[in-house]
């Protein structure tokens, strides 16, 4: 189970990195989204993925093997909210750039704004 989640996470991270290197601003934004979701999956895998396990509270009466650590899930929740805010801001910036420059292709934008 862990191996599967890690493989998915690795696929997300590498896909995200690939998209980040693209010339189009929108793809960079999607890349960042993939990257943060890949990271969230990695965080999830640290809690020990026992199938059918419940968080600590229910574990008291049912033996100790079926415990899932709830803390990483709380961390992921926070990370998702932050990632959401950052993605929204990035999209706004990309859109404003497109509005003011008429293009979102970095190849075309390159050199258009002189330094000073």
């Amino acid at each position: 189970m862990e191996l599967l989640v890690l493989a998915v996470s690795a696929a997300f991270l590498s896909g995200g990195l690939y998209l980040m290197l693209d010339r189009t601003l929108l793809r960079v934004v999607i890349g960042i989204g993939l990257l943060s979701n890949g990271t969230n999956l990695l965080l999830l895998s640290t809690s020990g993925l026992t199938p059918g396990g419940a968080p600590i509270l229910a574990a008291a009466g049912h033996g100790e093997t079926a415990i899932v650590d709830p803390l990483p899930q709380a961390l992921i929740l926070t990370a998702i909210v932050i990632g959401f805010g950052v993605t929204a801001l990035l999209l706004t910036l990309a859109y404003r750039t497109y509005q003011s420059q008429g293009s979102e292709d970095l190849g075309e934008l390159h050199g258009r704004l002189a330094d000073e």
Binding site: M20, L25, I32, L35, T39, L42, L43, V86, L90, L93
Partner: peptide, 22 residues
């Protein structure tokens, strides 16, 4: 935009570090 992308990447790395250390 550049500043944000660089920092978003480093934040992801930060979380990966948190996951491993946890």
């Amino acid at each position: 935009f550049k500043y944000l992308v660089v920092n978003a990447l480093s934040s992801c790395l930060f979380l990966i570090g948190v996951a491993i250390i946890y």
